[in-house]
Every structure is written in C-alpha cells, then in structure tokens.
Design a protein around this nucleic acid. Structure first.
Lengths: 188, 188
DNA sequence: GGCTCATGCCTAATGGTACTAGGAGAACTG
DNA sequence: CAGTTCTCCTAGTACCATTAGGCATGAGCC
C-alpha cells in the first residue's frame, strides 16, 4: 500500500492524455484509476467527482491552448496574425483532439470567468485591432472568427471534410484568406 | 401485459422529444423506457442497443432539418436564399437543441452516405449557385458556410455569446451580410 | 526513538445504466 | 381453433459513480 504521488494536477494531466487517446467522452474515473494503477475510489481523495475531473481537464486545456495561441501570434499583425491565430487552434485540435473537446466543455459562468477562456476572447480582439473595426463590428467579428474556427475544426475532426477533394488544407487557407479580405473590407 | 404500440419510429420520435427536454447526452434507454411507461428491457425488442437509438434520432433530426431548410430556401436566390438557409439552421437549433445536437452525431461513412446529410450538402451547393463561384472555390465556400453556421449555432447554444452586448441577433445578421458580401466578391 | 495523527489508499456496499436470457400471454395466421 | 410470432415481462450480469469506513504509512512533535 505504498503511496503513489497522486495529486489533482497529475490526475488532470493524465486525464488529458487519456482524453486524447480515447476521446473526452470516454474519460471516466474508472479508466483514469486503471491508468494510474490505483483502485477507483482512491481518486475521490483528490477529485470531488467525475464532473470535477472533466472541468479540471477543460481548464487545463483552455490554459494550454491559450498559451499556444499567445505564442503563435506574438509579434505578428494583420493577415499574419490572423493566420497564426487560426492555425494555432486547428493544430491544437488535430494534435490533441481530446483536450480540444475538453476545452469546449460548458462551464458555469463563474468558472468560465476565472478560466483562460477570457484570454482567448482578449486575443481574438487583439488580432482584430489590426483591422480597425468600429465598436459593434469588432464584437460581431470576434463571434464570426470564433464560429468559423470552432466550426471548421469540429467538422474536420468529425470527418465531415475527409475523403473528398479538395484538400482540407486548401479550404482552410482559402477561408483564412477570405476572412482577412472580409475584415479589411469592413475596416472603418 | 397489454401491448403498447411501440415501434422503432415512435421510440425515435419520443427520443427526439426527450433530447430536446434533457439534452441529447442524457438520452438513455432507461429514461426512454420510463417515458414510455415500459420496463427497460422491453425496448430491446425494437432497438439493437443504446447507440442504435442515438443513430436513429440523429437520422430523424437530419431528415427533419433538411425538410425545413428545403422549405425555407424554396423560391429564393442570392442573399435571400443565404439568409433563409442560415436562419433555418439556427431556428431549428434554438427550437430543438437536443435534435440539433443529435444531428451532429458522428455517423459511420455508409450510414452518413444514406442519410439526409447529403441533402444538406446539396442544398448548400444550390445556394452557392447564385454566386457563380468556380469549382474549387465552391467547395471551399460550402465548408465555410457549414463551419460558420454550425460554429455560431453551437457557440450560441453553449451560451458563449449570452449576457454580453451586442445582441446575438445583430451579430447573426452582420455575419450573414458579411458572408453574402464575401461570396459576391469571390464571384468569377 | 516513540507517540499521535492526518492522509492516501484500500475493501465493501449502494444505486444507476446497458444488456442478455428466458418465459408468458396476446395477437395474428393457417 | 391450434400454432406461431411478437411484445413485454422478470431475473440476472456487468460496468461506472459514489459513499462509508478501515488500516497503514509517513510527518510532526516531544
């Protein structure tokens, strides 16, 4: 009965890896206990319940993704920044599909407000600063970008674009180009 | 032990209603049995298993949604058709969130090929006919529309845009306008 | 070093969901 | 009307989530 070094942080990380391997929906307290070589109820010393685990993984993924996006857009502006922003999301989703799905978990308002989710919104606004939109338009544009990127990535992950020409990468580039043109045309 | 008139079709419909009430993820064989006033194992005469139920609801929702969209765009073209198409999706998702979530269930390729999903793609292409895009661009545009509409609707349902100005309807209108302008500018 | 004590992990038990096996009665079919 | 089929049932298995309660290990105190 030696003690493993289980902590909420390690469990969260292990849960994130598990999510990438088997899908976020299959992340279960049981499976995580098995992966950690521990009996199921042992985890309840570190986690409140199953939902708590899911939320922790979601917050972890939001944080990690925000870091990546911030890194990608640093020092860029305009079309360059837009493309880097978009690619950071898409690459993360392709590299870590389970974590990406986790990041889309619906959080209750106060948890969301304290999460890295706000950094995502701030970064989207920062990208748009280069396009000099006036006030209501900037918010509309944030929502448009969020919709397109999230929508494309989730459809792509679901396989909706697979097995049909043209290549998914070409469509992605075309879409990013189009959004850039769109935003420039809306510039005040 | 009188026989109820349970059929796969009625169970599918009841499942769709249940999905709208409690969310697609909470649609369970148990809950459906309770709702139908029948013991759980009885449903296994009509359904293969839990996944079969989910797929049936998904196919039902795809069909119903395709009918609505077809109805909405009939006799329209250009910006009108685009707006009708977009609104049909959004209205369906708001009216039937559980069914909309069901329609997004990942289907295996042969099931998807036999589903109303193909009608959705055809209708999107039909809308774009009014913009006279050349061949690869038309596919990119189909993917863009799918991404934006799906992305916006799912973020809106998740509450991502709630409780912050401006109004969700205004952003939606702005986005549809923007897409119309974008497609016209890409016209060959 | 020995005592205490919190803690980390355990076993045991409950309840919910998915699913299978097998039975009994109602309804259809000849 | 007899046989068959079909629908629904009870009973039982297995897995997941969660709680209760126990024991031992390792940390802190003297």
């Amino acid at each position: 009965m030696e003690k493993r070094g289980l902590t909420p942080e390690r469990l969260t990380r292990a849960g994130a890896e598990l999510a990438d391997e088997v899908g976020f929906d299959e992340v279960t307290v049981s499976a995580l206990a098995r992966r950690c070589g521990v009996k199921l109820p042992s985890l309840y010393s570190h986690l409140k319940n199953s939902q708590d685990l899911r939320v922790r993984i979601a917050l972890f993924a939001l944080e990690e993704l925000a870091d990546r996006v911030a890194d990608a857009v640093a020092g860029r502006a305009g079309r360059d920044a837009l493309a880097a922003f978009a690619d950071a999301y898409r690459d993360y989703a392709r590299e870590h599909p389970g974590r990406y799905a986790a990041a889309r978990l619906r959080l209750d308002p106060e948890t969301a407000a304290a999460s890295a989710g706000v950094r995502h919104a701030q970064m989207a606004r920062a990208i748009l600063r280069g396009y000099e939109l006036n006030d209501p338009d900037a918010t509309h544009a944030v929502r448009l970008l969020g919709s397109v990127f999230h929508g494309y990535v989730s459809l792509e992950l679901a396989g909706a674009f697979a097995h049909s020409a043209p290549d998914e990468q070409q469509s992605w580039d075309w879409i990013v180009d189009s959004l850039d043109a769109l935003l420039r045309s809306r510039s005040s």
